[in-house]
Design a protein around this nucleic acid. Structure first.
Lengths: 319, 319
DNA sequence: TTGTAAGCGTTATCAG
DNA sequence: CTGATAACGCTTACAA
């Protein structure tokens, strides 16, 4: 594996001159530079990133830490992040769980975007304390070099449920996500507030977990029960899909018998029967903005303020 | 940011002794060792991975290189890879496009799993030539340190189409993926061979692109045409979903008017109306096996042979 | 314009 | 059992 030493030797110059030439430092004689570049090409030389990183104390890597690799939201956010980081000349490094922790502790990234509730506060704070920026997605944490971007779930769900009440629905239920999920709780807040403001006192509550399977199980329970709600608002689309499947299997018609809606606007919602009404966020754009902010933080040590994205109600057939 | 030097000083020992203790090298006096460990803890010390990597010429990272971050197959494979790499003590680093190239060229990973047809052969070969192992998924390339794992698409599609012919279908069409996609072409081979062996001479061919939108567009064309096929085999599930949507919108009943099936067994297939018949691969298991092979290659320089996964026909309602 | 040499934070050899 | 010290491959003062 050729090193800069080999290049220098082949070009008949010192290591430092080779380094200058390779890094486009001005002041190298054009001819010498060409000789060095030729030598590098001939040897198929690439700088050893590790060595450069050690010396410069920069890696050029931004870590994106997630808990799992599935989910449509996740992939859209990631796509946006990828675009912006590439534009800004950073490498994107997506990682998970134990690996995320290692990469943070060992400082293999210049900054991080965290989309994972299981990375501990301590780990994040320790990393940030060494002057590395961290952006948290859908999670709140404060501290030096720590930033959060949280979607205003509450407002948009409030608006949606209010409109459904105006449309005539009265008997609501909430199909929840995990209790410790920040966005689930905000959505529930919006839901409750809308009912309250429209003087609707009661509602049913089902405990789900954001998965299709979870929604399906709840659906089966609802089928058995006598008191079926007229409208079930689901904390996310996947819950809604599972629920819908269970209802369909029992011949319960959506939206005639039970209406429902979700959150996220995952792309398959449009391909279901009936098509799923939902609330969408422009996740790609969200990813872009966060990535831009992190790039700025790393380059200029200054956060670029940005508008956290709003939700959009997407009316389709399920309510 | 504390370094091993700080730890050594605090514990009153030399740097090398500190290093031994921290790395569990036997032969350090228990008391000294404890003192060092305590010092490390007190200082909140973590080794600088970059420095360690430089010295040891190992990073402990395995790169997983993809073109885009979406797609259910992709996330399942990734999940399997993650599990196995974690078990083997490697960090998983998922990356894309330009970043993948950088990480390879700069040797920031000890080995790579490539699920991206756009990384050039030259880049991969150059990396592999420096004695790093590469595993390609669904892509063929030969060379030193280069391995491929390719699903036997042909055989399983052949088997499926044959069974459909036995069931009585005669008038087939193939809705294709991109022409340069290896797996699409193998699936088409299997499809054609089955027809040929059962003496079915003709079939229609539609050019798709593996996306829902592509399938939808083809569906709209088919609706307009007079000569509709009776059975459309789709190169993947997403094409099938788009196609189904178009047909449904025109009141064409699946499977009564037109039957169809896909490939991949993406999880939403089960939630469609009608439920999609498809061919599934255990992608999580595939990921696990490939990751194990790469781990072995890195650790022992020896490839563990494994059975490349077979497909499984999943009969549901669409044919 | 080019070369010398120090140093980034580790590991590992060798001597004590 | 512990400590000096060289080395990993690069960048970057500083000197020539």
């Amino acid at each position: 594996m050729p090193t800069i030493k080999d290049v220098a030797k082949k070009a008949g110059v010192s290591i430092s001159t080779a380094s200058y030439a390779l890094n486009n430092v001005p002041g190298v004689h054009p001819e010498t530079k060409q000789r060095i570049l030729d030598a590098a090409k001939a040897l198929n030389y690439y700088p050893n990133g590790i060595a450069r990183n050690l010396k410069t104390k920069k890696t050029g890597n931004v870590g994106v830490f997630v808990y799992g690799f599935s989910g449509p939201i996740f992939s859209n956010v990631l796509e946006g992040i990828r675009q912006k980081l590439q534009q800004n000349g950073f490498n994107i490094i997506v990682s998970s769980r134990k690996s995320s922790e290692n990469l943070l502790n060992e400082r293999q990234v210049d900054g991080a975007i965290v989309f994972d509730n299981n990375l501990t506060d301590a780990c994040l704070k320790n990393y940030a304390s060494h002057d590395f920026p961290i952006y948290l997605l859908d999670r709140k944490l404060t501290g030096k070099n720590i930033y959060s971007s949280v979607i205003d779930n509450e407002a948009i769900v409030y608006q949606f449920i209010s409109s459904m009440i105006k449309k005539g629905y009265k008997d609501f239920a909430y199909l929840s996500g995990p209790n410790d999920a920040y966005n689930n709780n905000r959505r529930y807040d919006g839901f409750k507030q809308a009912l309250k403001d429209q003087k609707i006192k009661d509602h049913k509550y089902y405990q789900g977990d954001f998965t299709i399977e979870g929604g399906y199980k709840i659906g089966q329970e609802i089928i058995k029960s006598k008191q079926r709600p007229r409208f079930i608002y689901c904390a996310n689309d996947e819950s809604a899909i599972g629920l819908m499947k269970a209802l369909r299997e029992e011949g319960i018609h959506v939206p005639k018998d039970i209406a429902l809606a979700g959150f996220d606007n995952i792309y398959l919602g449009e391909y279901l029967t009936p098509k799923l009404t939902t609330i969408g966020i422009d996740h790609v754009e969200w990813g872009r903005k966060v990535a831009q902010a992190v790039s700025d933080l790393i380059k200029y040590k200054k956060a670029s303020e940005f508008e956290h994205p709003d939700g959009e109600i997407i009316m389709r057939e399920s309510c």
